[in-house]
């Protein structure tokens, strides 16, 4: 059992264990994707992208642990940064869109074609 304040880095993680974490990460990503596709509430759609960020972070850290490298954890810091920036921009946009149509429905903006 690993302790919180480790004395030294723990022993190498087996490939079977890596597989477990990757499966959990894949299921989390899939749930986020399905949520993004099916929900019509703009805020919940962005919440689902955050779910996918979580899944990618989990995969990065699991691989980092497997390879005994800390770059995985460093990269998750940048994933967090991008998630925070995305949340700020997306929520500002959502507030703006809500003021225009008084609705959070993504389909209220169906007429917006490029």
């Amino acid at each position: 059992m690993m302790t919180l304040a480790q004395a030294g880095y723990p022993a190498a993680m087996g490939g079977a264990t890596l597989g477990h974490y990757l499966v959990v990460s894949a299921i989390l990503f899939t749930l986020g994707l399905i949520g993004f596709l099916t929900r019509r509430n703009l805020i919940i759609m962005f919440l689902c992208t955050e779910l996918m960020f979580q899944a990618s972070g989990l995969a990065l850290i699991a691989f980092g642990r497997y390879h005994m490298s800390f770059t995985g954890q460093t990269f998750v810091i940048f994933v967090l940064t991008v998630a925070a920036a995305e949340a700020a921009m997306a929520l500002a946009l959502v507030v703006l869109l809500f003021r225009r149509r008084e609705s959070l429905d993504a389909e209220a903006w169906q007429d917006m074609k490029g």
């Binding site: 899939t30 994707l33 399905i34 099916t38 929900r39 019509r40 509430n41 609705s103 389909e107």
Partner: peptide, 23 residues
Amino acid sequence: YDTSAREPVGATVTGFLLLALLT
């Protein structure tokens, strides 16, 4: 827009196809 999903069948099939490939 909160109580009804959009294209539930298509999205779920796509999602779980992706999951089958990923795993």
